[in-house]
Structures are given as structure tokens and as C-alpha cells.
Design a protein around this nucleic acid. Sequence first.
DNA 1: ATAAACCTTGGAGTTAGGTCTAAGGTCAAA
DNA 2: TTTGACCTTAGACCTAACTCCAAGGTTTAT
Lengths: 133, 133
Amino acid sequence: MYRIGELATACEVTADTLRFYEKNGLFSPSSRSDKGYRLYTEEDARHLKFILRAKAMGFSLTEIRELLNIEASRSDWACADVKGMVEAKAAELQRKIDEMTRLRDSLQELADACCGGPESAIHCSILDTLETK
Amino acid sequence: MYRIGELATACEVTADTLRFYEKNGLFSPSSRSDKGYRLYTEEDARHLKFILRAKAMGFSLTEIRELLNIEASRSDWACADVKGMVEAKAAELQRKIDEMTRLRDSLQELADACCGGPESAIHCSILDTLETK
DNA sequence: ATAAACCTTGGAGTTAGGTCTAAGGTCAAA
DNA sequence: TTTGACCTTAGACCTAACTCCAAGGTTTAT
């Protein structure tokens, strides 16, 4: 059995984060000590690792709660449900990537047009563009 | 002279947003009516458009405040200062794009390995991977 | 003249995901 | 036995960029 600080250290998060996840219904300890300390099992640790992996994959805590529901009763769901969630997330990321790529290109264009020298910015093409485009 | 609602509508933001920008030192009306209404000039409108363009380029309001400071006294700055800001922002965006691309690839890999069928998710490879990777 | 549409202020609420504090209880080592 | 590290709770605070609300004053249209 791990206490909260041990599990937190082992998984490289803070104890506060674990309490936060608990308060938000993602993850609770299997038991408490007689004095009220949270006690986590290996099973709990795997559960937390699932959460952290999903988070690293870019899922929000709300989405992770859904994944946990599915995980908790797999037989109630179809593979298509799970695959759908993952593909929707990938598509969402793609949309963000596309938008950020456009922004980056605009910025690069702006930068490329600027002399970048030590001269005063009185005639700076970047500022001119932002002013009047 | 525009009143706040007129300028807001013209620039497709809300009056609340303009008051918010004012409270945060980005943008103030040139004058007030005798009853206290904000009155904006064409010059003010250009100023706001500068802000909105910079925002569309991905700059935060804090960064926009810096740009506005530079813009307000161009001769105190060098082109290199401005170009530096823009290039730093482009690089920051690139880092985020790279990270999101890695995430998207991981998700796509996860999805590709899943049958995606109507069968129960008991043996779903996605959930298995999240559990044990 | 009066209703609708606009404006004012200060301040609270929102979202996401934590992070920190206060006031106190517990446990292990020296 | 006392110090220090750990744990408990409730609840406040943080960032960013708004968004909404209440309570009131103004302007405009009919």
C-alpha cells in the first residue's frame, strides 16, 4: 500500500494533483488507514498510470472520465466507440495544428520582410503591416 | 466619433471586450461625452485594429501591450527588437506544432491498431495500450 | 410620454487544471 | 520527547481572456 506522497512521487505528480483528481471523480484510493490516510494499491497505481497516459495523449480530464467509464465496463461498449473517440481527438488536434501552422507562416512572412537591423524601428515593416494591413 | 457599441460591432468584438482592454491598459477612448459615454475616433479604431490583428497573429494581450509600447515610440526601438519578438513567437508556435504533431501521430497509431468494429471492447487494443504501455 | 435600446460602474463568474494556505493530526527517528 | 516529515480538510487563489450581472442614467423612436 502506498500513501499519497509515495504514489505521487512514483508517478511524478503532486499529492495535491491526486486529491484534485479524487475530488473530480477520476481516481480514488481503495481504502483509508484507521487514521484517515489514503492507501493506494498496485491496482490503483495502474489506474493512475492509465489517466496519466491518456493525459499525455492530449485527452482532457472530462474525456479521460469517459475513457475510464468505458474501461470500467468494456463489455458495454464497442470498439467503434473507443476508436471514434481517438479519431475525433486526432482530428481535433489536426485542426489545431493547421491553424497554428497558418499563424506560424504569417509570422514568418512578417519576420522575413523585416530588415532586423539595429536601425530605429521608425520604418519597421512589421509594425507597418500590423497597423495597416 | 463612435460610441462603444458602434466600434465593437464594426470590429466584431463586444463592448465588454473593449472595456476589458481599457481596464487592462491596451486601449482607451480619446474622449468622453459630457454624460460619460466613451467616444472613439478613427485613430482609436485603427489602434483597435492593430490589437486585433496582433491577436489574430497569436500574440497574447501582454505581448500586444509590448508591441503597442514599441509602436507608440518607434524611434526608441530597433527593427531587431521587433523582429526578435516575432521570430520568438514563430519559434514558440513551432514547438507547439511539433508537440501536437507527435500527439496526433500517437493517437493515429492507436486508432489504426483498433479494429473499430461493433464488437464489444473487451479486447480493445486501444484500452489495452492505455492500460499497459 | 414612454418604451426600447443604449450607456455607466463595480464586481462576480467562467473554464481547465491545478496550486497553495491554514489549522490541525500522525508517525518515525534521535 | 521533541523535531521534522508526512497526512487531513475546506476553501482561497492562479492564469487568460473574457462574460455576465445589477442598478442605475441617457438617448432615440414612436
